[in-house]
Design a protein around this nucleic acid. Structure first.
Length: 304
DNA sequence: CGTCTTTGACCGGCGC
DNA sequence: GCGCCGGTCAAAGACG
């Protein structure tokens, strides 16, 4: 089945014009700065800044367009996938009528999961849930698959939140124990998380979240976890669903921003209006973080 | 000493 | 009603 996985590698090239403009800038500023003692500056600073602003605006526009296209493609794919899976689950449920409870929960979960979209609004709309089994009704359920080092036996999925383990149990259908976590960041937050290794692929941790956090991600308020490292290529979140039916794999290319960081350290690129760049990144982040599942997956990938 | 993890006991839902 | 199973509780121990 591995071969059927879709690798929708997400390369956030948030500075497509960088190399070109940097070279140009370098040339320009080498003339101005390096030999400043000898030469008169070709352009004055304000001109350069205006030019830079225009460039960044153009980049911003380009990025917005790219993001729009990406979103459209993403929703189209998600829609197709939803259709496929709902067809599958209908036939499966008919076959396995004996395992009623399991099938129903599985079905519900699948419907939720497909949506890696985080479209919890649509996938778990409570009005529609009259068909759902009672115990699957309550909180919003989503699940994230995280690929880990098989030798790592810990059942820890770092997703940016602070969890307190309150139980562990070996379940019937899986020899690997299942760990139960509760969100400990806010006492009023009733989100729960179950983490269990996949029976089929022990290198994959399946984290099932129940409920919604009523607070920000711990990273926003607390110091970053020690394990956070931009070079960490560890656990890549595998969007829910599924080891059975060709699950789409989102690979987050976290090296890209790291390279940019390096680039930013070079003296000749510091002129790159860091504030504007930061604004750009914030805009991107704001757009992307509208998808809660995406943020969860991203957090898991970063904190690996 | 406070917090977190571990782990056996307990409870409730479900199927037979 | 009974047994199975998943989920939760809570005491005990570990750890910083």
């Amino acid at each position: 089945m591995e071969s059927a996985w879709v690798d929708t590698t997400l390369v956030l090239n948030i500075n497509p014009c960088q190399s070109r403009t940097n070279k140009a800038m370098k040339r320009e500023f080498v003339g101005e700065v390096a030999d400043s003692g000898v030469k008169v500056p070709v352009k004055d600073e304000s001109e350069v800044l205006v030019e830079e602003l225009n460039r960044v605006s153009a980049e911003n526009k380009k990025l917005t367009e790219m993001l729009t296209v990406l979103c459209e493609q993403y929703y189209a794919l998600q829609h197709q996938f939803n259709e496929l899976v709902s067809n599958n689950s209908r036939t499966e449920a008919a076959k396995i009528s004996s395992k009623k409870r399991k099938a129903e929960c599985e079905d519900y979960r699948t419907n939720n999961l497909i949506g890696f979209s985080g479209n919890t609004e649509s996938s778990s709309s409570d009005e529609d849930s009259s068909k759902q089994p009672k115990d699957c009704l309550k909180p919003k359920i989503s699940s994230v698959h995280v690929r880990t080092n098989p030798s790592d036996t810990s059942l820890i999925v770092r997703d940016g939140y602070q969890w307190r383990k309150y139980g562990q149990k070996v379940t019937r259908d899986n020899p690997c124990p299942r760990a139960y976590f509760r969100c400990s960041f806010a006492p009023s937050c009733s989100v729960k998380k179950k983490v269990q290794r996949s029976a089929e692929d022990p290198s994959i941790l399946v984290a099932t979240y129940e409920g919604e956090h009523n607070h920000d991600c711990a990273h926003n308020n607390a110091p970053a976890e020690p394990s956070l490292s931009p070079t960490n290529t560890g656990p890549a979140p595998v969007p829910s669903a599924q080891t059975k039916a060709a699950p789409p794999t989102v690979t987050l290319d976290l090296m890209q921003p790291a390279r940019m960081e390096e680039d930013a350290k070079k003296p000749d690129q510091r002129i790159d209006a860091p504030a504007i760049r930061q604004l750009l990144v914030h805009q991107m982040a704001a757009l992307l973080t509208r998808d809660p599942n995406f943020t969860a997956a991203l957090a898991a990938a970063i904190s690996g």
